[in-house]
């Protein structure tokens, strides 16, 4: 049995590895990664838009791959490497995707933006055929809703970084 379990308990002890830091936490067993990030770790850059895996606003990277943190228990991530929007910049230097989003105005209200950026960062590490054309980028960014519809600007931002 893993350390994440205790005898007939509805609480769990987990070690969350977020943005290179280790956060030991004692949580309700059903605490989602999203709620743990926002409420317990106070990393509020990751947003809740639907809480049911249908909007992508809560996208983070788990061991380098994009997931929705609303349908993931914090307990399931015990020991996994989580990257959130707060962890993208290195030594204060923004990630190129963040710069490109600013330049192309790939946001309006900004609420979905963290999820869009995380998804875009992940996309750049996925198969190249997922960003070969604008239509490919559109398809593989379709898990992130943007009601303000910055979509064409998001595509332009990703295209620019992908082409570099």
């Amino acid at each position: 049995m893993s350390s994440a379990t205790t005898a007939r308990s509805t609480e769990v002890t987990v070690e969350l590895h977020v943005n290179g830091r280790v956060y030991p936490a004692r949580l309700d067993s059903t605490t989602t990664l999203l709620d743990a990030l926002r409420d317990d770790l106070h990393l509020t850059g990751t947003k809740k838009g639907c809480d049911q895996g249908a909007c992508g606003a809560c996208t983070v990277l788990r061991d380098g791959k994009r997931i929705v943190s609303c349908l993931t228990l914090a307990a399931q991530c015990d020991g996994s490497e989580i990257t959130t929007i707060e962890g993208l910049a290195e030594d204060g230097v923004p990630h190129p995707v963040q710069d490109a989003f600013v330049k192309h105005d790939a946001m309006q209200c900004g609420y979905c933006t963290a999820g869009q950026v995380m998804s875009a960062v992940s996309l750049l590490g996925e198969d190249e055929d997922r960003r070969a054309t604008d239509d490919d980028i559109r398809e593989f960014m379709s898990g992130n809703l943007c009601r303000c519809a910055a979509y064409p600007n998001i595509v332009a931002a990703i295209r620019e970084v992908a082409g570099e």
């Binding site: 990393l43 850059g45 947003k47 707060e86 993208l88 923004p94 946001m107 609420y111």
Partner: peptide, 15 residues
């Protein structure tokens, strides 16, 4: 550029 863009792309804009 949108003057609040940096805050939005870094998750720092408070909703």
């Amino acid at each position: 550029d949108r003057v609040d863009a940096r805050r939005k792309v870094s998750g720092a804009a408070p909703y």
